[in-house]
Amino acid sequence: MVKRIIYPPMWMVFGVCAIFAFNEFYPGPRFTSQASQLLGGAILLAGLAMLVVAGGLFKRAGTDLIPFRNVSALVTTGVYRFTRNPMYLGMAAILLGVAVTVGSSLALLVPPLFMAIVEWRYIRPEEALLQDLFPEDYPAYRARVRRWL
């Protein structure tokens, strides 16, 4: 198994830094308005709420929040009924909210890049692990709930 030193929240922090770098140095066309700031703030808060709720469900199930560590339960309730990766989706929403709030069109490249990195480094290996740990339950869950939305 690949050793992962940089965990997903750090990738989100890198993404926020990239958004502010784009905003400062390479903003591209701007779209700043009070409406975009309110929309960005709402997206950011929704992402944060999803992250907290999903993390709480993991804690309640007694499984670790750190990827690949102490996986003891397959969580399929709450927000996990709508997306298999609500924590990663919440982080992507936070990045999208920040990008919309700053109003830099090139900053909008960061959330999909974050999603690609997370899918490649974490989600696909996690799916293989869950398949091995829960050979009966995970395929059924995977068949009824999408990876992202």
Rank of each mutant, 00 (worst) to 15 (best):
I19T: 09
V110H: 05
P27A: 06
T32I: 13
I43W: 11
V110P: 05
W11F: 11
A21P: 01
L65M: 02
G47Y: 07
L95N: 10
R147N: 04
V79I: 12
T77V: 12
M1L: 04
P135D: 05
W148S: 06
V53R: 02
S105G: 07
L57K: 06
P8K: 06
M1V: 08
V16R: 00
S33W: 07
I123K: 10
G40F: 01
F58N: 00
W11Y: 13
F20I: 07
R69E: 00
L95C: 10
V53E: 12
D64T: 00
F58E: 00
F25P: 04
L44W: 12
G78H: 05
D132L: 15
G47T: 10
A99I: 05
G40S: 04
K3C: 08
V52M: 13
P139F: 11
V2C: 07
A93W: 08
E136V: 14
G15N: 02
A140E: 15
P111R: 07
L108M: 12
E136N: 15
V98I: 12
T76A: 12
T77R: 09
F58H: 01
Q131S: 15
R84E: 02
M10P: 03
L51H: 12
L113K: 03
Y122K: 05
L133E: 09
P8C: 05
F25M: 04
E136M: 12
M115T: 15
R124N: 13
M115W: 13
L149C: 11
M50E: 08
L95W: 09
L109Y: 09
K3A: 10
D64F: 00
F58L: 07
K59G: 01
G78C: 08
R69M: 00
Q34M: 10
V98N: 03
M10V: 14
P135Y: 01
P67V: 01
F134P: 09
M115I: 14
P111I: 09
K59V: 07
R147P: 04
S104W: 04
I66F: 10
P112N: 08
A143E: 14
A143S: 15
L149I: 15
L57F: 09
V16E: 02
F82V: 08
D137K: 15
R144N: 06
D137P: 06
L44Y: 13
F31W: 04
V53H: 05
A143D: 14
P86G: 03
L129Q: 06
G55F: 01
L106K: 09
A18S: 14
G28C: 03
M50T: 14
L89I: 15
L109V: 08
E24P: 01
F14L: 10
S33V: 07
G55E: 02
L44F: 15
T83E: 03
T101P: 00
R142W: 02
P139E: 11
M87W: 02
D132G: 13
V100Q: 01
